[in-house]
Design a protein around this nucleic acid. Structure first.
Lengths: 346, 346
DNA sequence: GCATTTATGAGGTGCGTACCTCAAAAATTG
DNA sequence: CAATTTTTGAGGTACGCACCTCATAAATGC
């Protein structure tokens, strides 16, 4: 026998199609008793809604906006690419995506942008932004207008966002820490910690996770203070020179942000390339290459393709007031070394 | 403007809906010139066929069969669970899945089963099986009847399967090897290699990858011959006792299959628990627990939820003669340690 | 028990596509 | 050029579901 349809349920439950429809779509005006009868029939027949037909009938479009900081960072670029890819696929399920960039430091600009967007017929917003009172207020405001909000890659746990799509940054930092400790081994040593900036919440949490593991499991290794380079190769080189001259027993470098283009150059200049363990976050074109060349030993990352698809699915589910499949939407903390480098699809 | 529909194409091309339909569905009775005109219009408007509506109109269902060996192995159990989960979700896209088990050693039984299934109106088969001439013939036979075939978790590269869904076992073995080498460090040492059975192709390939890395990158570590335990705790204990008494400098154990329930017990009996590096494959309830307890140091795995969903998507795409999104369907070789253990959803 | 509220039924329309029929137009053949 | 064949158009029905309206039945309040 073919799949049961809404008509079969109506017949089975002894009610009309309209009532079945009211139950299925949680419309008001049905007695609890009737609802139960319908659900029993659904159960009995093993009815599963044909999602495609449902969407077709709804004729509904979903406009989603993705807001990313306007930085040159490889990570944001890669994320944007992944989101663009996911968007073209999502187009076949009536999901339209607009990518917006906002000035990375200007939360007022972000706030204004969100307010403007909220007045169009938007279904949801995906957002990667620093945690400030202004951001939180902006999120509250758009949520109040019934727009779903998910945070991407860097969470804003104290905001009213619907969902966070990304990995636990602190656990990622712990993972980096364990690998650093195990790769370095039992020698007494020091580890440098480098970051482009500590603005986004995830950098702070990674550092916290990293330290936690170092203190607990590798007391013979000490992690130095975070050095911010603000993306400048000059600063990096200078900082590196200074630390290396003062501190001879540097055995590892932990990069809080995504890879550092200039790091390999600077390291080889000081004859340290391949002699220190280098571990960082986020698989991008740069870190991929660094792994291939042996300039980095491990990268802790998340699958950005998955992140992008997941974000759009979650936004859509929230817009439809439908439940989320947690097991599908949970991102894994991935450890990437040269041997398990996933293929790139460019 | 909304998505273009077939009607828009008809208007744009200056032909009727019927003609557009004939072109879209490759029905005869259209001049080459007209076909071109229609295709130009499609191009110009950027039309993308709404596959959901198309399937609805076709009234098409997809019956898929998944064939797994009838072993008690934790891995197969976990895989089966993942497939069941994926199936309930897939039901909403008109995909019905039947799970079949066949006697693990009896390829004739598998072959018979496949022939029987091929005579029902099946759209595709997902299969995990050893590589034998009988398996290959059976695959050829069902493919000849227009049924799509994908291999799951363990590939049959010399068969005519449409697609393989799973990770490259040899690369997974290399990954295990590198971790083993780096975790052990610079000491001269030996590594035991244990397997339940070497029947499935992936065990052999993992071993090959492992050895490759050991020879190339860690010449001071030697990997012993593979010891088959056939799932018996007694055999394991015995084997372990023998090797440990002969060979004092065992620094690591590499488990080719998924975890070994009895390994921790046996190791602690010999006072070796926590003193050797234990690395294995496949994240299951057992290996998860072993990681949590520190009885294993790393597990190389693939996301079985992803694998299951991917398998069904690929089968469906083949049935529709539609292209596959490689980047979405490629599984990653995942390294799992205690710190990045994904949550379990049971 | 009557007025009022609430639940339910009957029936229709449309989403984008597939597939069918029949008639008419256009191209091809002898 | 007539006869034939091929191509095209017009229109309809169906798929499974969402959503709408209006009428009627049932439950509830007083």
């Amino acid at each position: 026998m073919p799949r049961p349809t809404v008509n079969d349920i109506a017949r089975e439950a002894g009610v009309s199609l309209a009532t079945v429809d009211r139950v299925l779509n949680a419309r008001p005006g049905v007695r609890a008793k009737t609802i139960t009868a319908v659900n029993d029939a659904i159960q009995k027949l093993g009815y599963v809604r044909d999602q495609a037909a449902a969407n077709l009938a709804r004729g509904r479009d979903y406009r989603m906006a993705i807001l990313l900081p306007d930085t040159e960072s490889q990570f944001v670029q890669t994320l944007a690419d992944a989101l663009r890819d996911a968007s073209t696929v999502a187009a076949s399920t009536r999901v339209e995506v607009e990518l917006h960039r906002f000035p990375a430091e200007d939360m007022h600009a972000l706030s204004t942008l969100m307010r403007e967007l909220a007045d169009t017929d938007l279904a949801g917003i995906g957002l990667m932004a620093p945690e400030t009172p202004i951001t939180r207020d902006a999120i509250r405001a758009v949520r109040a207008k019934g727009i779903a909000v998910v945070t991407l890659a860097s969470d804003l746990p104290n905001s009213e966002r619907d969902h966070y799509v990304g990995i636990d940054a602190q656990a990622a930092g712990r993972t980096a820490g364990v690998l650093m400790g195990r790769f370095i081994g039992n020698q007494k040593a020091k580890v440098m910690v480098i970051a482009n900036s500590m603005q986004l919440r995830d950098s702070i949490e990674r550092r916290r996770g990293f330290d936690e593991v170092m203190l607990r499991s590798f007391p013979h290794i000490s992690a130095l203070q975070t050095l911010e380079t603000h993306g400048s190769p000059g600063t990096l080189r200078q900082v590196l020179a200074e630390v290396l001259s003062h501190t001879p027993d540097i055995a590892g470098i932990y990069i809080l942000g995504s890879g550092h283009r200039a790091l390999a150059t600077a390291l080889s200049e000081f004859g340290m390339l391949g002699r220190v363990i280098v571990i960082g976050h986020e698989l991008t074109a740069h870190t991929r290459k660094a792994l291939e060349l042996g300039h980095m030993d491990a990268v802790i990352t998340q699958n950005l393709g998955h992140l992008a698809r997941s974000a759009l699915r979650v936004l859509r589910a929230r817009a439809d007031r439908q439940p989320i499949d947690e097991s599908q939407e949970t991102l894994r903390i991935e450890i990437v070394i040269r041997e398990n480098l996933p293929p790139s699809f460019d």
